[in-house]
Amino acid sequence: MIGFTFKRVLSAIPVLIVVSIIMFMLMKMGPNPLELLKQDPKFSAEDVKRISKLNGWDKPLVEQYVFWGKNFITGDLGISTVDQRAVWDKISERLPLTLMVTGLSMVVSLMIALPIGAYVAIHKYSKSDYVATLSTFAMMASPSFFVALLLQLAAVKLQDMNGGTLWFYTGGAPACVGAGSDSGILKTVGSCAMTPIEAFRRLALPVTALSILQIAGWSRYMRSELVGVLNQDYIRSAMAKGLSGKVVFFRHAVRNALLPLVTIVALDVAGLFGGAVITESVFGLPGMGGLLLESVKSTDIAVVLAIVMIGATLVLVMTTVADMLYGILDPRVRVN
């Protein structure tokens, strides 16, 4: 197992290097941030030169990349070229909210999607299967910003029906995440747990919006996995042996169907870090997605690279973890 992990780490290094080079080049080819500065009539030619030098943009590309790489390895993510703040500060103040929203929606979706998927797998081709299929497909067919608008509309209508009492906030972060960069993720979650009602009223709409898509995908997946497993010979033999349907279903079928989900969920966990750009923007949540969008649009290389590199590392880590888990859960697969 240690050997396996070591090998994985070794093979991850070149991948990460190439990922960083690709993103670095993409960003460098992107719109020149100096052009953005020039829009402002107050910037003189000297100002532009000075700022370019300050950010090291006047050096050769290779040098810039090596400079960035050296710092990155030592844990220095650099300085944002937009507001001169440390990149890590910008990320860490956004991360708690993003993790809370995406994490919650993941838990909610799994709790809803798995039972639905399992139910319709047993009742294949029944009415409920068709209804579930239709509704999951319908969820997939709705652009997320439109879903978000409908949820806001619902909240507004609900308020009107309640005579002006608003149940669900249509936007804004809960007060408990506002403590800025000095509060850690745990502290944030802790303080939100202290004010669960406010947090719930704030996060209900965005978490629902995010969950809708995930429920659709996962319940479909669960269904097809379980259908596949239920068709297997060993289920039939288990039944033939006289085991009760429940035992066979939960101990054999569901367990085996869940195995591949491990990998998917693991990768989705890695994806949590990046946030959800559309949902965050509609509901006014200052999360990672918004930071990413701002940074990409203003060609803030240090921030984008940091997000990409952390994201890519998480993907690699979670794949490894998933493979190891898989080995533990499925005796047929041995990690070597």
Partner: peptide, 18 residues
């Protein structure tokens, strides 16, 4: 001063009193 990046949502929030 509250920051809500979506101007459509801002209008909704005015309506809801947020």
């Amino acid at each position: 001063f509250k920051f809500i990046p979506d101007s459509n949502t801002l209008k909704i929030q005015l309506r809801t009193g947020e």
